[in-house]
Every structure is written in structure tokens, then in C-alpha cells.
Computed example of a mutant assay.
Amino acid sequence: MNRIDASEHYDESAFQSQTPSLLTVVIDTNPRAWAAIHDLLPISKAVANIFVFINAHLSYGNENQVAIVAAHTNRAVWLYPPSPNPDRALSRRPDGGGGGPDVEMTGVDSHRHRPREPQLGTSANKYPQFAQIESSILSSLRSLIDSTSPSDLNPTTLISGALSMALSYIHKTSLAFQAPKTSKDPANPTTAPPTKTAAPDLHARILVVSVSESEPAQYIPTMNAVFAASHARIPIDTLSLYSAPTFLQQAAFITNGIFLSAAANPRGLLTYLMFGFLSDIEARASLITPTQDSVDFRAACFCHRNVVDMGFVCSICLSIFCDIPANAECLTCGTKLALGNYGAKPAVVPRKKKKRKRVVNGTGREGTGSAAETPGPA
């Protein structure tokens, strides 16, 4: 029977379940930045295009997952999945560190009212999972916008906090996909380890849709999140709609991610998303991904939080300063900076006098000490 229906020619390994992929999208929701490109791309159309991209990612496999984080002006908020405890505030500083005053991290308004429960679409033409995700994101995004006060309208965007939340969620999700560890046999403790490297249980990546410039005050927490993602082999992709953020360019380069700038044509957001960022880590090994022509590797100084091209670096803690600190002491670790001969005037070396040439019979050659001319051929 197998020869009749040709089932023996099929490769059974091809029908095995694929590795699930987790896509975490960080959306820059700075109102000032979106107001600058409102004529080209309103935030409503941008969110609609992101919905199409998310649905395409989920359509690749039943086990694919998605998470959405909003990087706002003074906090980072989960848009999807919704927080199980919306009334519990998470402690987070605006610079991305821990401690400090409590900042609301859930989709509730300023009066601490619970948002409306997302209603599933009743259209038969929409997949129920897509409708549930879209309703949850729109409800959380509407609550975030309504809770934004005029005092929150500053040009700073908390990208570092959003990256930290995304990495924490990815780590928590990867633990759920890990296979249970088998205990060693006490009768045979010298069991040889497996020779082949185990395949990853989850492919995770982060996509940042940015409309703001990099904030120098967030250089340290952003780089901490970037190096943590690089250590965990999680690529950070970036799609810039307005400018070229310096730190996100470095994040894409360090984590082997993709950086694209759509500042010339923000209306083509969906095209950039579908053709540049839809492939996961496993598929990118067989594709030619977009590359960066140049990367801005400038860093922010630790003293004035300015992006500098050249500066002074502490040899102990690698802190960067745009100018020599007071008493030549590192402001981070207190180490005395050895500046050597920096600032000393260079030594003046006298120029060596050149030997002057004698003019003989109108020619500029040196004289031989004889008044007679050089005899020519007869």
C-alpha cells in the first residue's frame, strides 16, 4: 500500500513540529515624535500595518508567539499579553534601573480604573486569535494615551526599560519551552555527555519600531540590555521611521540584528516589515538580509551625558569622559587617571639648515671650487 500511494518517499522528519518563534515588538509611543511625522504616517496607520505584520508572523506556525511593549516617555507598558495583576505597580526608574518611586506599568488610567475587557470580533472573516490580540493591544494603547498628561510630553523615550522588559519576558517564556532535565543514573555516574549540541527550544528576537533619537542619558542601561541580549543570542532588529538612533544601530550590530531606516519614506512601513523583518533566526541563515553601510559607534560620556567622538577612558571601569574630571579622578570608581604628558607643550626641534647652492654661469648647480668651465666633448 505504501508503494501505491507513494508514502514511502516522504521524509518523516519534514513533518515534525517546527521550533516555535517568539517575536517581541517594542513600539515607540512618544507623542512628540509621532506628531513630527503625522502628515506622512499617523500612528493609527502605523499600528494597522504592525497588526498585519504580527498576523503574518503568527500564520507561519501554530506555536509562534508574539509580545508587544510600548516604550513611552516616562515608562514602559505591556500592550500584549495583558498583565495578570493590573492593579500592581512595578518599581522602575525612568532611566531603566530599579528602585525609586513606583511607576504604573499596566494598562490602567490615572484614576486606577481597569480598562474595558477586549471584545472579540464577530466577523467570520477574521481569525479569533488575531481579533483577540488586536483588541487587547488597542485597549491597552488607548488607556496609555488617555493616561498621558501634558507634563509627560518630553522628547525622552524609555527604550532601555522596554528592552529590559522584553528580555525578561523572553527568558521566562524560554523556561516554559525547555525540556525537563533527566536525573543522572546513580549506578552509572560516568555517562558520556552527548556529542551533538541540542537544538534551541525557542527562537526569540526583538523588533524596535523607533521614531525618536537616542537619549544620551540612557546610554548605560541601553548598552547593558544590548550586551545581555548578545549573551543570550537574541537579535535586536530596528526599524527607524524618523531618524537614525545611534544606540539602536549599535544594538543591531552587536546582536547580529537588522537595522533599516525608513525616514525617506515612512509610508512604506508595511513593506519594510514584511520584506526585512518577517524571517526568523533560522530562516535568515538561508537568506541575504539587509546590512548597514555604516554604524555610528559614538558613545555618551558619563559626566555630561553627551555623545562624543573622542574622550578620556578610565582604564579600570572603562568610564568615558568628555573632559578631564576634577583632580583627574574617575567619577565612577575614583581611580587616579594617569594622563602622562597630556597638556604639555611639544618640544621645539630646530630645523636643519640646508646647504645653499652657488650660482655658476647662470646655472643653479653647486660650484666645484674652480672658475673654469667643465670641458665638453671635442
Rank of each mutant, 00 (worst) to 15 (best):
M1F: 13
R3C: 02
S7T: 13
Y10L: 10
S21Q: 15
A36S: 03
A36W: 02
S44I: 07
F53V: 01
I54Q: 12
I54M: 15
I68C: 08
R88E: 14
A89F: 02
P101V: 04
V103S: 05
V103P: 00
G107D: 07
P118T: 07
A124Q: 02
Y127P: 03
S139D: 10
L141F: 01
I145V: 01
T148Y: 09
L153H: 09
L158W: 11
I159N: 01
L163F: 02
T173D: 06
A176V: 15
T182G: 12
N188T: 14
T191C: 10
A199D: 07
R205P: 08
V208S: 08
S210T: 12
V211L: 13
V211K: 08
S214E: 15
P216H: 10
T222Y: 06
M223R: 14
A225I: 09
A229P: 01
H231Y: 13
H231C: 02
R233M: 11
I236A: 00
D237R: 14
L241W: 04
Y242G: 00
F247V: 12
F259L: 03
F259K: 03
A262L: 10
R267I: 04
L273W: 01
F277I: 05
S286A: 02
S286M: 07
S315L: 13
C322S: 06
L339D: 00
K355P: 05
K355H: 07
T368W: 10
A372G: 03
